[in-house]
C-alpha cells in the first residue's frame, strides 16, 4: 500500500513529522454505514509504543475510526470498509476480505467508553480472553491474571477479593478491570474509546497515569473528547472533523502551532 505523499499528516510547512517505527497505519480508510459515508479517506500512522490521540467534536467519526481497527463494525449488517489498515511488523492489511475478524481481535484489545465488566468474578473477567484462546493451564492463567491486574494498577485493591463480582467494584476500578482484561492477552495495540468519560477526576487521573506506564510496552490509540487529556498524555494527535482527518502531528506541535485554521479554532475552543 503506497503512502500518499501529500496526505494531511505532513503539515503545510513541510516539516514532515513522521513517527518511527510504526505499529500500524491507516491508508485512505473510508467507512460506510449503509450508503452514508462516515470516514473519508483517513490516513493516520500509529507509532509503536507511543500514545496516539484522536480528537474532534462529537460525531466527527473518531469512535467509528477506532472500531475499524478490531473490525467491530463487522458485527452489524450494512457496514463497509474501503482502503486499508496495515499492522506491522508483518504488514498485514486487517481489512482484507481473507482476514478473519476474530484473528484481528486476538491481536488487538479494546477498552470501551462505559466500563463493561462481565457480571462474573474479577478473576474470570481478566481470565476470559485467555479462556477464549483455549488456555487451560490453571497456573499460567493465575500468573497472567495477576500480571494484568498489576499492569492495570488494580492488584493491590482487589487481590483479596478476586472472587467478588467485577460489577461490584467502583466505576474507576471497573474501568481498570476492563484495561486488565484487555492486557491479559498481550495485545499488540490497545484501543481506548473515551475510557475516562464516565469517570470522576481522581479515577481519570489514575487511568492517565496508568497509560503513561503502559506505553513502554504497548502501543496505544485513544479517542478522547477532552483536549486537555490529549495534550497531557499523548505523543501524537490526530484531529478529525466531519469524517475527515484535518491534521496529524506531534502533540506538542499540534497544540502550540497548529498548521490548519480549523485545528486552531478547535483547540482554542472557538467551535466544537
Amino acid at each position: 500500500m503506497a503512502r500518499p505523499v501529500d496526505g494531511p499528516y505532513i503539515d503545510s510547512a513541510g516539516r514532515g513529522d513522521w513517527p518511527k517505527p510504526l505499529k500500524a497505519e491507516t491508508c485512505e480508510l473510508s467507512f460506510y454505514y449503509g450508503t452514508r459515508l462516515v470516514l473519508k479517506r483517513v490516513s493516520v500512522p500509529i507509532a509503536e509504543c507511543n500514545i496516539t490521540a484522536l480528537i474532534g467534536p462529537s460525531g466527527c467519526g473518531k469512535s467509528t475510526f477506532l472500531r475499524c481497527f478490531n473490525r467491530m463494525h463487522d458485527l452489524y449488517p450494512g457496514t463497509r470498509y474501503e482502503g486499508a489498515i496495515v499492522l506491522y511488523p508483518d504488514s498485514r492489511n486487517i481489512l482484507d476480505r481473507e482476514v478473519d475478524p476474530i484473528e484481528v481481535r486476538m491481536r488487538l484489545a479494546m477498552v470501551f467508553q462505559k466500563p463493561n465488566p462481565f457480571p462474573k468474578s474479577v478473576y474470570e473477567n481478566v481470565a476470559y480472553g485467555l479462556r477464549v484462546r483455549g488456555v487451560k493451564d490453571r497456573r499460567a492463567i493465575d500468573e497472567k491474571v495477576e500480571q494484568a491486574l498489576r499492569s492495570a494498577a488494580l492488584w493491590e485493591e482487589v487481590k483479596d477479593r478476586l472472587s467478588a463480582l467485577g460489577t461490584s467494584l467502583s466505576g474507576g476500578q471497573q474501568q481498570r478491570l476492563c484495561i486488565a482484561r484487555a492486557l491479559a492477552t498481550d495485545p499488540e495495540l490497545l484501543l481506548l474509546d473515551e475510557p475516562t468519560s464516565a469517570l470522576d477526576p481522581i479515577a481519570t487521573a489514575s487511568i492517565e497515569e496508568l497509560l503513561q506506564d503502559l506505553k513502554r510496552r504497548v502501543t496505544i490509540l485513544i479517542v478522547t473528547h477532552n483536549m486537555q487529556q490529549a495534550a497531557r498524555i499523548s505523543d501524537w494527535t490526530a484531529f478529525m472533523y466531519l469524517g475527515e482527518l484535518v491534521e496529524f502531528g506531534p502533540t506538542k506541535r499540534l497544540f502550540t502551532t497548529p498548521a490548519k485554521k480549523q485545528t486552531e479554532d478547535y483547540i482554542t475552543g472557538r467551535f466544537g
Binding site: 478490531n70 467491530m72 458485527l75 476474530i102 481481535r105 486476538m106 484489545a109 479494546m110 470501551f112 463493561n116 465488566p117 462481565f118 476470559y128 480472553g129 477464549v132 484462546r133 476492563c178 482484561r181 484487555a182 492477552t185
Partner: peptide, 9 residues
C-alpha cells in the same frame, strides 16, 4: 457486554 466478549476474540 456482547461487544466486550467479541472484542476479546
Amino acid at each position: 457486554i456482547r461487544e466486550a466478549a467479541f472484542a476479546l476474540g
